[in-house]
């Protein structure tokens, strides 16, 4: 790792001023950026450490009945908080199925969606064509090793998937990332925080320089939820596919369901058409299969990952059952 100059932010306002300096990157939990620097993905002359600032850590109930989670809250503390466990099991499960206990003690919930893709060409020690690593250089994965890559929303310029689990749960919950940029900030829906290659194949997310995620807000839970993660080993592994489901039931009839898939696109992928068709349908009915097929109508395989279409479809079906309490 090349050396850099370092500053510890003293407050939220201080963090925004420091992170707005030229050639400056932000470190919070540090579980990603230090590895980017070791590999050579980024080489920032300056790092501003926001991990010690106060006021944006912890889980609190909102007057509306929802919840607000401070961006610097450690993943383990979010997942094991009584409010989250009770009202948002999908989020608790998604977090506890990500990374390792040690990493979850370092990584922050606000830093988590800032993760970058795990595509081996992006993370390569030697230069290979990758538009996220070197804009304009092409995408080696499109005709290369792509069995873990996207089935939705890819272009020939980038076929990578966003690898994180918690943002998939947050997308299904219609959570909002609250940002601060010193001028009021923005409220960015979790489902559109990460950037699709059709928008910009070199980008990772929509956050701007000098803008920080300071909190996450989730509406009141009037539904049950579940997270299903399919992976090659039982623990401490990225998802091959995952499915987050939030369902509001009237007996065995679906009032409303929200479904987000993970590791199938450059962002958590909501199955909007499936959701629309499932309103008013009975659990265990043929309507579920038909609605899922409709949601996968725009899935497109790459040369080596057609299996992921069936896997993701069946994971979504199973996750609906889990959320509905069908075991």
């Amino acid at each position: 790792m090349r050396d850099f100059s370092y500053a510890q932010a003293k407050s939220r306002a201080d963090a925004i001023l420091l992170s707005g300096q030229p050639n400056t990157m932000v470190i919070a939990g540090g579980t990603e950026i230090l590895n980017w620097m070791r590999i050579g993905i980024v080489d920032p002359p300056r790092l501003v450490d926001i991990s010690r600032i106060t006021g944006i850590e912890g889980v609190e109930a909102l007057p509306s009945g929802g919840v607000r989670i401070g961006a610097l809250t450690k993943l383990n503390d979010v997942a094991q908080h009584p409010l989250v466990r009770k009202s948002y099991p999908v989020l608790s499960e998604a977090i506890l199925k990500s990374a390792s206990p040690q990493i979850r003690n370092l990584a922050t919930v606000g830093g988590n969606p800032m993760q970058r893709v795990r595509c081996p060409y992006f993370r390569a020690d030697e230069p290979t064509p990758c538009n996220k690593r070197s804009p304009g250089s092409g995408c080696a994965a499109f005709e290369g090793f792509n069995e873990k890559h996207a089935i939705f929303g890819w272009t020939k310029d980038c076929v990578a998937v966003h690898p994180a689990d918690p943002p998939v749960a947050l997308a299904a919950l219609d959570a909002i990332y609250v940002t601060d940029d010193g001028q009021g900030g923005r409220r960015i829906p979790a489902r559109s925080f990460n950037t699709l290659p059709s928008q910009d194949s070199a980008a990772h997310n929509v956050l701007r320089a000098g803008e920080l995620i300071v909190g996450i807000e989730i509406d009141p839970a009037e539904a049950t939820s579940a997270y299903l993660k399919v992976r090659e080993r039982e623990s401490y592994e990225y998802a091959t596919v995952s499915a987050a489901v939030v369902v509001d039931l009237d007996g065995d009839v679906i009032r409303r369901v929200r479904i987000a898939l993970g590791s199938v696109a450059m962002r958590p992928w909501r199955l909007s058409e499936t959701e629309r068709r499932l309103a008013g349908k009975k659990l265990r009915s043929d309507a579920i299969d038909a609605a899922l097929d409709a949601g996968f109508a725009d899935a497109r395989p790459l040369s080596s990952n057609a299996y992921k279409i069936k896997l993701a479809r069946n994971a979504a079906k199973r996750a609906i059952e889990l959320a509905a309490g069908i075991t």
Binding site: I27, G30, T31, S51, R52, P101, Q102
Partner: peptide
Amino acid sequence: NRGECGACTVLLDGRRVNACLLLAAS
């Protein structure tokens, strides 16, 4: 040295963390 193996696990204020993923300055 990438946070993948856990061989560098230590306790920081009593909680387990990967020492390779922490800047000493922090």
